[in-house]
Computed example of a mutant assay.
Amino acid sequence: MVPVSSIVGMALTSVICMLVPVGGFVWIATRRDAGVRRYPKVGRAFAAGMLAFVASQLLTRIPLMAWLGSQDLSWAQWLVSAPVASFTAGLFEETGRLLVMLWLLRRFHRWIDGVSFGLGHGGIEAVLLVGLNQLVTLGLAILVNIDPGKLDQMPAGVREPLVTALTMRPPLDYYLAGVERIGAIGLHIGLSVLILWGIVAGRRALAWVSAVLIHGVSNLVVVLLATSGLPGASVLAEVALLALVAGFWTLFVLRSRPWFPTMPLR
């Protein structure tokens, strides 16, 4: 039997991945002042953020990393190692973020456009990399508990490891996956605001380098803590991520709002 607490964690993480970015965007898009939309055409930034993730990760970095991982070469294995991969994620995603903003957000330089862009970027990442997987896992867990006989159609070499993983994995892991997505979405929003600020202020290179470093360091801290072997390492990793994101928002993201135009450019 898969513990009920694990099933609840799977469902909760699925909801976080699907509803947090969509709910955040809907809340922004429906804000009104005296019957007039407060943030007109903010959906463009949301869609652009999704495109930036797909282009920078799904179509480029992820296939490249998969190919490198299959090569029995020392330099290739170095490139896919956790420390280097932490920064290549930042390199690809922040470059994609900058290029897509320059291409599609030429008239949309509001602070809220950066927020919406980050919701789209982090949201599609959450759905494709975590949310869909959690939904499939949830369905299998329910099947194991209600009608395990249906799994007999699977080859034994697939069925037994699957059932073992579902029944033996600590329930906390499923909840932490949801916490990690909240932190990741918050980070993507902050990095999007940073890159957009660089465009507005004419300091694109500074913003891009800063975003790559912040992204890479955040990834590296989480990876090192999660694999440290310390008691509660997984919890420490997610607490560290939330602390880094909270600090980033406090020191820059929230303070930067007055530095942006309040209306789309003509």
Results as ranks from 00 to 15, higher is better:
residue 38 R to S: 15
residue 59 L to G: 04
residue 31 R to T: 11
residue 28 I to A: 05
residue 19 L to I: 04
residue 45 A to W: 00
residue 44 R to E: 08
residue 24 G to E: 06
residue 25 F to T: 06
residue 45 A to S: 03
residue 58 L to T: 12
residue 16 I to G: 01
residue 51 L to Y: 10
residue 50 M to T: 06
residue 36 V to P: 12
residue 28 I to V: 06
residue 52 A to T: 11
residue 25 F to W: 10
residue 35 G to I: 00
residue 59 L to K: 01
residue 45 A to N: 01
residue 47 A to L: 10
residue 61 R to P: 14
residue 52 A to M: 13
residue 27 W to I: 12
residue 29 A to I: 02
residue 37 R to Q: 04
residue 52 A to R: 10
residue 53 F to W: 14
residue 31 R to D: 14
residue 29 A to M: 02
residue 50 M to W: 04
residue 47 A to V: 08
residue 60 T to A: 15
residue 27 W to K: 13
residue 53 F to H: 09
residue 47 A to E: 09
residue 45 A to H: 00
residue 46 F to N: 13
residue 36 V to I: 12
residue 48 A to D: 10
residue 43 G to V: 05
residue 45 A to E: 01
residue 26 V to H: 07
residue 59 L to S: 03
residue 16 I to H: 01
residue 44 R to G: 08
residue 41 K to P: 13
residue 55 A to K: 07
residue 43 G to H: 07
residue 48 A to G: 09
residue 16 I to A: 01
residue 40 P to L: 01
residue 22 V to P: 08
residue 56 S to W: 00
residue 62 I to Q: 08
residue 42 V to N: 09
residue 58 L to H: 10
residue 35 G to D: 00
residue 49 G to V: 04
residue 47 A to C: 07
residue 40 P to N: 02
residue 44 R to F: 09
residue 46 F to E: 12
residue 56 S to E: 01
residue 50 M to P: 06
residue 49 G to P: 06
residue 51 L to E: 09
residue 36 V to K: 11
residue 21 P to L: 04
residue 48 A to P: 11
residue 60 T to P: 14
residue 24 G to W: 07
residue 22 V to H: 08
residue 40 P to M: 01
residue 21 P to Y: 07
residue 25 F to Q: 04
residue 30 T to E: 03
residue 60 T to I: 15
residue 54 V to T: 03
residue 22 V to W: 10
residue 59 L to W: 07
residue 63 P to D: 07
residue 38 R to K: 15
residue 27 W to Y: 15
residue 31 R to Y: 15
residue 38 R to P: 15
residue 44 R to P: 08
residue 23 G to T: 11
residue 53 F to E: 09
residue 47 A to F: 09
residue 43 G to K: 02
residue 34 A to Y: 15
residue 49 G to M: 02
residue 59 L to V: 02
residue 58 L to S: 12
residue 55 A to P: 11
residue 28 I to R: 03
residue 60 T to F: 15
residue 31 R to P: 15
residue 52 A to C: 13
residue 21 P to W: 06
residue 41 K to Q: 14
residue 45 A to Y: 00
residue 17 C to N: 01
residue 28 I to H: 06
residue 19 L to F: 09
residue 40 P to T: 02
residue 57 Q to M: 02
residue 16 I to R: 02
residue 41 K to Y: 15
residue 16 I to N: 00
residue 44 R to N: 08
residue 37 R to M: 04
residue 44 R to V: 09
residue 16 I to C: 03
residue 34 A to W: 15
residue 42 V to R: 07
residue 49 G to A: 03
residue 53 F to A: 09
residue 54 V to E: 01
residue 27 W to M: 14
residue 54 V to H: 00
residue 55 A to F: 14
residue 45 A to K: 00
residue 20 V to L: 10
residue 53 F to P: 11
residue 36 V to N: 12
